[in-house]
């Protein structure tokens, strides 16, 4: 009976350790994916993931800690934007200040379509 208890305890500990390791692996992967979307704050055009600078290492550790403590991706992004500004995001968020940036492709498409339509009508009339 005692032996079975011991075996069960060993199995319990083993599975717990495996579970924790798996969790760390999963969160590390999430951290790597997020770090690839973030700009290194001290290097030119390098992502946080690629950067080997000390500050990038610290930021990656902080992101991993936040993931392990159950924080979501948007919470982590907000944490970083509050400290480093939108500069840290490769893909800027949609806001009033950024609206031109986001709407420019659609506006260009609209203008070009209108011009093409007019041209097409003129062309048809002439024909």
């Amino acid at each position: 009976m005692l032996l079975i208890k011991k075996i069960l305890i060993i199995f319990f500990l083993l599975f717990s350790i495996l579970g924790i390791t798996k969790n760390i692996e999963l969160e590390t992967e999430k951290m790597r994916m997020l770090a690839a979307e973030l700009r290194c704050v001290v290097c030119q055009n390098q992502s946080l993931l690629e950067s080997d600078s000390q500050i990038a290492k610290d930021l990656k550790e902080i992101i991993l800690d936040m993931y392990l403590s159950g924080k979501s991706e948007s919470e982590i992004k907000l944490f970083l934007v509050n400290r480093y500004g939108e500069f840290i995001l490769f893909k800027p968020t949609f806001s009033v200040e950024n609206s031109i940036l986001w709407l420019a492709p659609f506006l260009s498409f609209l203008i070009i379509s209108l011009l093409a339509l007019r041209k097409f009508r003129v062309f048809r009339k002439e024909k």
Binding site: V41, V42, Q54, I55, D58, L59, I62, R83, Y84, G85
Partner: peptide
């Protein structure tokens, strides 16, 4: 640890 300075948006 240097991690508290991150709260100040430290670059270096």
């Amino acid at each position: 640890s240097g991690k508290e300075s991150i709260n100040l948006g430290l670059y270096g």
